[in-house]
């Protein structure tokens, strides 16, 4: 059995190049395994060999999504590997989104199986769970050994077209696909046994989980608005006329940042709504009904708020998968923090 060829994608930090200050580096290539690739190579043993490692900075990837992905896929295509690993990204949000994007591009454009690894709270999980095999990991690199072992075993199975078992056996995040199987007992008997357990307060396992969302601790209040910088974010699909960023009218895969410096009200002819989920006539008549720029500018002028951010952030809320919406927020929250924004007003239709 000839050794399988593997390419491994990691970020600036794990390649040992540097932390945030090096997050801007563009894609580059290294021979053989680098950083976590060493542990991964060990886990792969004799069956596969890491022939190359692709490295890219998280900020570079986040800000140049299309070109970065194209360049990375080109490097990987050159090596014609049998298998690709990205990450593991643990709980690093932007790294997770990058690992997901690269793995998905490799599978869709090159038809090569790809496996990655993330912690459940990483927004990349919700964004890519339906497209990829994402091994469950701990919060940080402390659990590296166990993670790469699971990634290696799942990766080898996929590269050798062996049957992949259910999530709980192989250790990957539930992908949200409903697959049929033949149970031991008929459904009515399982229902009777389940109601008895539930009535007696004993543990039981539902066979179809209702969709639900995790909770986050509320932030402390903003005490002094007169010095605070406030930004508007909307999921109401408000974009400049002509939709320059081509944001989709539903299931949006991107968001836009649009300048409003010097404007006292949302100009009806320069802006429009592309949202597919509501009757747009009212928004088109007066964009301030979705993005309240007129009132915010008054509050700024009257000194009730310190400063209104020079831009607002917009995407379409309807149909946008939970994952993408979370990934957008991870991305633009960094920009808001860099620009000293202390509070956000989010409007949705």
């Amino acid at each position: 059995m000839k050794k399988l060829k593997v390419v491994h994608y990691i970020n600036n930090f794990f390649a040992g190049i540097g932390g945030e200050e090096k997050a801007g580096i563009s894609p580059e290539e290294r021979d053989g395994a680098v950083g976590p690739g060493m542990a991964l190579a060990q886990a792969l043993g004799e069956e596969a060999e890491i022939i190359a490692t692709v490295v890219c900075g998280d900020s570079y990837f986040g800000e140049n999504l299309a070109s970065a992905e194209k360049d990375i896929v080109a490097i990987i295509r050159k090596h014609q590997p049998d298998l690709v690993f990205t990450g593991p990204a643990f709980n690093a949000g932007r790294y997770g989104v990058a690992c997901g994007a690269v793995a998905k591009a490799v599978e869709e454009q090159l038809g090569i199986p790809a496996v990655t690894g993330m912690h459940e709270e990483n927004p990349g999980v919700d964004m890519y769970r339906k497209d990829l095999y994402i091994i469950k990991t701990g919060h940080s690199a402390a659990g590296m050994k166990k993670t790469v072992t699971s990634m290696a075993s799942l990766g080898l199975k996929r590269a050798q077209n062996q049957l992949v078992g259910p999530p709980e056996e192989e250790g990957y995040h539930v992908r949200g696909m409903r697959i049929n199987y033949w149970a031991e007992k008929r459904a009515s008997l399982r229902a009777v046994e389940m109601i008895l357990k539930k009535v007696k307060g004993e543990a039981y396992q539902t066979e179809y989980p209702m969709p639900d969302f995790g909770r986050v601790e509320p932030m402390p209040p903003v005490l002094d608005f007169s010095k605070a910088k406030v930004a508007i974010v909307t999921s109401g699909g408000i974009v400049p006329t002509g939709n320059p960023d081509r944001i989709e009218s539903s299931s949006a895969t991107k968001y836009g940042i649009y300048d409003i410096s010097g404007l006292d009200s949302m100009p009806a002819d320069d802006y429009t709504s592309i949202h597919g989920g509501y009757d747009r006539t009212y928004a088109l008549e007066d964009i301030n009904r979705v993005v309240p720029l007129d009132v915010m500018r008054d509050l700024e002028r009257e000194g009730i708020i310190g400063k209104l951010a020079d831009y607002f952030i917009s995407t379409t809320g309807t149909g946008t998968s939970v994952g993408s919406a979370r990934a957008f927020a991870v991305d633009f929250s960094n920009k808001l923090l860099e620009d000293g924004v202390n509070a956000v007003i989010l409007t949705s239709t």
Binding site: F213, V216, E217, V322, N342, L346, S348
Partner: peptide, 30 residues
């Protein structure tokens, strides 16, 4: 979206049309 803004350390208020959906999505101030 609202949860990730808060997780990044920025307080956020969600002006939402359908309150139950805002609650499900995890907004804290609605």
């Amino acid at each position: 979206m609202v949860k990730e803004i808060e997780r990044a350390g920025i307080p956020v208020v969600h002006i939402a049309t359908v309150v139950p959906i805002a609650l499900t999505v995890g907004a804290n101030r609605i």
